[in-house]
């Protein structure tokens, strides 16, 4: 079965998009969960600072999210641009 070069590249970009987003989602998912878990612990210990803690949690999660967004961007680039 002869596969053209362009066809092989297209197939690799589709599989690569799936791998990029799939594997790329593991880290931020676990990382954001750890942030949330520590925030809940801290609010449990010190409920008076719930507002500050929730804000800090969200900022920390947003930074952790960035690698997930990189994965999404790379996946979309592989799907639609490359």
């Amino acid at each position: 079965m002869a596969i053209e070069g362009a066809e092989l590249v297209k197939a690799a970009s589709l599989l690569g998009a799936g791998l990029a987003m799939g594997l790329g989602a593991i880290g931020p998912g676990v990382g954001e969960g750890l942030v949330g878990s520590k925030a809940c612990e801290a609010i449990g210990k010190n409920p008076g600072e719930a507002g500050l803690l929730t804000r800090t949690m969200l900022v920390g999660q947003a930074v952790s999210e960035s690698t997930g967004i990189y994965s999404l961007v790379v996946a979309l680039l592989l799907l639609f641009v490359v």
């Binding site: 690569g16 799939g22 998912g29």
Partner: peptide, 24 residues
């Protein structure tokens, strides 16, 4: 690719949500 993407992509959030729920 779609199946691999959703499969691996579900591992992290599932575990992360559990970690958050654990401490809550």
């Amino acid at each position: 690719g779609a199946g691999i993407c959703m499969g691996f992509g579900g591992i992290g959030p599932g575990l992360g949500n559990g970690l958050t729920a654990e401490q809550a």
